[in-house]
């Protein structure tokens, strides 16, 4: 199989773009015409051929450019990747999960040869070939978490389980919807979710935590979360808010179709075998309104969802200032 990887940017001139195929497979997150918070967790057994759910770790046309964008962010701010000392084993668990999955699912792109603890990894799209000793950090150029997540799309949180809670004790976070790993590292499930409005009172977080604590090995689960982002920017971090904030106010009725993106996070949950930690990949997909509206059903539904959403959620998600312009644009595509 031959694959194409886009040459594109997620900052500056923002040349990010989706092919017709990428638009077709975009994980549109709404299954109803209304939205509110819920415990929307489902098994993640794989999915239809070609869909973003098909494989454990989806590799798409943005792979190479996304990894270049991560490298830029890390060079400016190494603390986007952190791991408290007791999390190194979980890092190795994650490295194994990703290497084994990618080599199985994309044999044309990735190869993993294992001879005892002597591992040989080939990543063709990024031109990487690495021989190393599994569980020996001295044989890799970075810690195991950083090493593998510099080669895997999406953010990653590693949760340590203790006292019937989950603790955000390690992560690689460079494409976040406005939260800081450096600030949140070491927090528990309720502490890092504290800024989210309404959900705790609705019982969503208590139920979700209970569910996650019961996740066992060999089971994987997923949920979708979403927000709205102006320009195809991965690094919408609070650290750099003063740099990307002004762009949020650049939306006009003329440019909204191209500049306003629906940002969907495919979040998955994996229990790791040696550390018993939980891995929480957060994979970000971006699609501009104009491209989304090539699908009339998506245009119709998105219009209703964004028109009728609880203002508190619109505010928290950060698109309240542009809501009117967005909704008017979408109204033009639907005949409700």
């Amino acid at each position: 199989m031959t694959r194409h990887f886009n040459t594109e940017t997620f900052r500056g001139d923002y040349t990010y773009h989706n092919s017709p195929e990428a638009i077709r497979r975009f994980p549109f997150p709404f299954d109803q015409d209304t939205y509110t918070y819920s415990v929307n967790i489902a098994p993640h057994p794989g999915g239809p051929t070609g869909s973003t759910f098909e494989f454990a770790f989806d590799v798409d046309e943005h792979y190479v450019s996304e990894m270049q964008d991560r490298a830029i962010t890390l060079a400016e701010d190494p603390n986007r990747c952190q791991s408290l000392p007791h999390m190194e084993l979980a890092g190795w668990d994650l490295l194994e999960l990703i290497m084994v999955s990618k080599a199985r699912d994309y044999p044309d792109l990735f190869t993993l040869n294992r001879d005892g603890d002597q591992w040989h990894w080939i990543n063709r799209p990024l031109g990487i070939e690495q021989r190393f000793t599994f569980l020996d950090p001295a044989t890799l150029p970075y810690g195991p978490l950083e090493y593998i997540t510099r080669q895997t799309q999406g953010d990653f949180a590693l949760l340590h389980e203790r006292d019937r809670n989950l603790w955000l004790d390690a992560g690689m976070i460079t494409s976040q919807a406005d939260w800081s790993l450096d600030f949140d590292v070491g927090m528990n499930f309720f502490e890092w979710h504290a800024p989210v409005p309404k959900a705790r009172q609705m019982g969503v977080f208590d139920k979700a935590l209970k569910f996650l604590l019961a996740v066992e090995q060999q089971q994987a689960y997923r949920r979708l979360n979403w927000t709205m982002t102006v320009n195809p920017r991965l690094d919408t971090s609070p650290e750099n808010y003063h740099k990307w904030g002004p762009e949020k106010r650049s939306i006009t009725p003329q440019n909204v179709g191209q500049k306003q993106f629906l940002r969907v996070e495919l979040q998955t949950f994996w229990r790791l075998p040696r550390s018993n930690a939980l891995a929480f990949p957060i994979r970000c997909y971006l699609c501009c309104l104009e491209d989304l509206c090539t699908n009339p059903e998506w245009a119709r539904r998105l219009h209703l969802v964004l028109r009728d959403i609880d203002p508190v959620l619109a505010d928290y998600k950060g698109f309240a200032v542009n809501q009117k312009t967005i909704v008017e644009y979408l109204a033009g595509f639907s005949c409700v």
């Binding site: 600030f183 070491g186 927090m187 502490e191 609070p238 808010y241 003063h242 002004p246 200032v321």
Partner: peptide, 17 residues
């Protein structure tokens, strides 16, 4: 929003946008 590890509240640019 408070971090026990840092022992501080979070301050965020008020005129970023």
């Amino acid at each position: 929003h408070f971090s026990r590890r840092i022992g501080a509240f979070q301050g965020v640019c008020v005129d970023a946008e």
